[in-house]
Nucleic acid binder design. Structure first.
Lengths: 186, 186
DNA sequence: ACCTGAACACCGTTCAAGT
DNA sequence: ACCTGAACACCGTTCAAGT
């Protein structure tokens, strides 16, 4: 009957997956584990801390092997993996972006992009700007895509199938901008 | 004693300004207006509808005259105005980005960017991608800036003064990418 | 180490009824 | 047109106490 931290985390992710952020409640989580809501606080200090762990789990679940040789393709791989990891889970973009903005977790993708750019001898200032611009783009795109999909499926809004612009094309825009900077500077 | 829609909206914006999104509650809003919570529902169908009106008000409040002649500078003006409008209000980025993602409001800046790009004879497909990429960047940057600031001021987190990368530099990256696309295509 | 039970201080929303 | 009063079905969090 006794649960550990991983049990609770795993069930929290399942709850998010199947019923969304609004259903990920300390009370509901407790109920589904057959435990009082207050028992969750033995494993996580707060709901924020639980969500931070959930965000990290969403990213870990989406990890793929790296194959690209050149830095622009490596960046594309990281961004694509990040996007798919978030879209694979109901409200995943919301959870991951919020946890990241609060500095509570979800730092792996940005760290990885910084490492890629540093290895490619990109100047430090550009490393910081480029990796953050990319992550802002990926979060923004995924959040909009996921939210619009839900808003439509709930019938709440008529934006219907105005079709989101292609993810890769916007990504190419940012990467091309970075490339232009590097040429101009070199 | 009787309030109209504008009264209620104005007070909602004040509440957001002074105490943030967590304090913008139907119950608290009613209490401060000397009215039952249920009275708000005479003016707004739901809290979401209220927030949509609040988002539009935040943007309207931040409107500035346009001065630039060239499209890249015009885009920069729109993005800068959008950013400042959101940062001027507690949790402004969160409210505006969410309302926009749900398709419930806050559409003026994107519409304006689309008009600028169309006037500059940018191909339709690029118009859609570029304006959305820019708005994703602005939302992401502002949301992070505002959230990190609050997280630090609440002492919740030690990310301290890691100093956000310059807004204009990231913006230049995207605009340069667009420029490169246009040259490559022409 | 893990949990209970009870409480505290809240939420959004609905709806019949009042003026 | 604008609001009341009461209810419904919830929240996150704390804390003494139990096993």
């Amino acid at each position: 009957m006794a649960h550990n931290r991983s049990d609770v985390l795993a069930h929290a992710v399942t709850l998010l997956d199947t019923h969304g952020l609004a259903a990920l409640t300390m009370r509901r989580l407790g109920a589904e584990l057959g435990v009082q809501p207050s028992a969750i606080y033995h494993h996580f200090a707060s709901k924020q801390a639980l969500l931070a762990a959930v965000a990290d789990e969403i990213l870990a679940r989406g990890a793929r092997p790296r194959t690209a040789a050149e830095w622009p393709d490596q960046l594309r791989e990281v961004c694509s993996e990040l996007r798919h990891a978030m879209l694979a889970c109901t409200d995943g973009a919301d959870v991951v972006a919020t946890v990241w903005a609060f500095g509570l977790g979800a730092e792996a993708p940005v760290k990885e992009m910084e490492a890629i750019l540093t290895s490619a001898d990109v100047p430090d200032e550009l490393v910081a700007v480029a990796s953050r611009t990319l992550v802002h783009y990926v979060f923004g795109h995924a959040f909009e895509e996921q939210t619009a999909r839900q808003a439509v499926s709930l019938g709440a809004v008529e934006r219907s199938l105005e079709s989101l612009p292609d993810f890769d094309l916007g990504l190419a825009l940012v990467i091309d901008g970075l490339r232009a900077r590097l040429h101009g500077a070199a």
